[in-house]
Simulated assay, not measured.
Amino acid sequence: MVEKRTPGGAPTAEAEQTGRTGPVPKARTADPGELAVRPGEDPWTPEEVAEARAELDREVARLRTEIEASESALAGLMRDSGEGTGDEADTGSKNITREHELALASNAREMLSQTERAVERLAAGTYGLCENCGKPIGKARMQAFPRATLCVECKQKQERR
């Protein structure tokens, strides 16, 4: 991803709209030796880093497709909401379906945001570091949950609040 700026160096309207005016990591994957591991864990191999990147890329593509499908379904539901016999049960059913599609789309957007952030962290070499305490999250945890941003200890503290 390249930072969006005008020829004079000012952020573009798109950059201002998205809030991404600071430096954005280049489209690369960190060297395996750059990624954090917990004491006693084997370092990341180039193959493991490549697999993590590929899995994140596949997830981004899947989520974008899911969001498009939800938005299309919502557009159809909104278009059809004005039509009908006026039956309250039918109207209620359509409302429930619309709320369900809105929830699915919202969840997919949140997961997409987390996944894109993981891709950025992988490129920047901060993938696998806890965003709260700065300690390594753990290679096994990152392989099981590639979007993880907190170590187990910090995640447990967060959930207790």
Rank of each mutant, 00 (worst) to 15 (best):
S81N: 09
R53Y: 11
R64E: 10
A103V: 08
G9T: 08
E99N: 15
S113M: 13
S72R: 10
F145A: 00
M142S: 00
R121M: 01
T91I: 14
A103W: 06
V60A: 05
E153S: 13
S106E: 11
P25W: 04
E66S: 08
T126K: 06
R38T: 05
A103K: 06
A69C: 04
E41K: 08
P25D: 02
K157A: 14
N95D: 15
A89F: 13
R117D: 04
R53T: 02
P7C: 10
R117A: 13
A10G: 07
K94W: 13
A148N: 03
E88A: 15
A103H: 08
A52H: 15
V2N: 09
A123S: 09
K26A: 12
T97A: 15
E71C: 02
T97D: 12
A54M: 01
G86L: 14
R109V: 05
E59T: 10
A27R: 15
D80R: 15
A13D: 10
H100N: 09
T91Y: 14
A27Y: 10
G86Q: 12
G33Q: 08
V37P: 02
E48P: 03
N95K: 14
A13L: 11
K157S: 12
G40D: 12
Y127F: 09
T12F: 10
H100W: 10
S113T: 13
A144K: 06
G128W: 00
P25S: 06
T18G: 07
R79Q: 14
E16C: 10
D90R: 15
R5P: 03
E55N: 14
D90Y: 14
E47T: 12
V37Y: 07
G128E: 01
E110T: 13
